[in-house]
Amino acid sequence: MTTHPNRRGVAAPVAGTALAAILALSLAACGATGGDRTPADGQTPTDDTTLTVPESTPATEGTVDPGDDSTASTSPDSDGSGDSGDSGDSDSADVDVTLDPGLAEELAELEALAEQIDQQLRDAAAAAANGG
């Protein structure tokens, strides 16, 4: 069976060579700026010879999506390792957060009222026991 070269078969090596050159330039550019990043997804070179490295802040790499849990960004393990969002979902600490902090205080106020009521009962008994 005879193989017939086609346009794709000819064009592929050419494109591969160009990509290698771009990558080389890209690496050189990264080395010059001291960065160690690769372009973000979807980032394309602006021309054939240079690659614009986005001025991204270091935080972009390790930031946890703030949409999942407002407390995650302050937790010690929110380093982008992916384990910050699933901690505490079902343990007692999370339940404690949902407990109304004023409840205990208001129960204490109720108890204070109960003590005052008890005092009134004792005063009433003291008066009634003596008549007159």
């Binding site: 409840l103 109720l110 005052q116 008066a127 003596n130 008549g131 007159g132």
Partner: peptide, 30 residues
Amino acid sequence: YRIFALRAPQVHLAVAGDREAAALAKAATL
């Protein structure tokens, strides 16, 4: 007049009872 036998206990019991009513209202919100 029965100030000690009746009036004094009446007042103390009224204060206690209304305090209980207030406490029950608060408890209902809890």
